[in-house]
């Protein structure tokens, strides 16, 4: 549609003799040839370089977001455990230990990249809250499940905020 409109616009200009003063020389000077060559090289290099940088950045973002997804999966595993009748101190501690190691790995990875994020501190705070409530007794009391579930919800939302931040960088 735009092409059609553009075509009629150019045709109108031609009919009004807007192009009559334009003269095309058939001579190609050495300087013109060099100009075309250099411009072409610069355009190709810029295209390659910018595309590569964008691809690298996209790859790194997706890599880090995958790490966050693993943390979320670990939280889901913890949620499943606390909603069973088999949630013992030993099993809960094992889950929290795995979760902590994943958070630390994520923190160390982001510090290597440009995607460093202060929200990792909140992840540690949520982890500590889960730890304090769920490792008080040998068997998890039923009345602490709601509180733990609420903390898990906030935990996951925090993770998703980090994903949005990283995606917008």
């Amino acid at each position: 549609m735009i092409a059609i409109i553009f075509f009629f616009f150019i045709r109108a200009l031609y009919c009004q003799c807007w192009f009559s003063s334009i003269i095309f020389s058939q001579e190609i000077l050495p300087l013109d040839a060099l100009n075309i060559f250099v411009s072409g090289v610069i355009a190709v290099w810029l295209g390659w370089y910018i595309t590569r940088k964008l691809t690298e950045q996209r790859f790194l973002k997706e890599f880090i977001i995958k790490d966050i997804c693993r943390i979320e999966e670990q939280i889901e595993s913890f949620e499943k455990l606390i909603n069973t009748n088999n949630a013992t101190l030993q099993s809960i501690f094992a889950e929290l230990n795995d979760l902590k190691h994943k958070i630390e790995r994520f923190d160390r990875t982001t510090k290597l990249t440009l995607f460093s994020c202060n929200d990792v501190n909140y992840l540690n705070i949520y982890h500590t809250k889960l730890y304090k409530i769920s490792t008080e007794e040998i068997n998890l009391p039923a009345d602490s499940r709601n509180e733990l579930q609420s903390i898990c919800d906030d935990f996951v939302v925090c993770l998703r905020k980090i994903v949005c931040k990283i995606n917008n960088m």
Partner: peptide, 10 residues
């Protein structure tokens, strides 16, 4: 601390 678990809050 290694070799023992779980280290509960209590």
């Amino acid at each position: 601390l290694d070799g023992a678990s779980p280290y509960g809050s209590s």
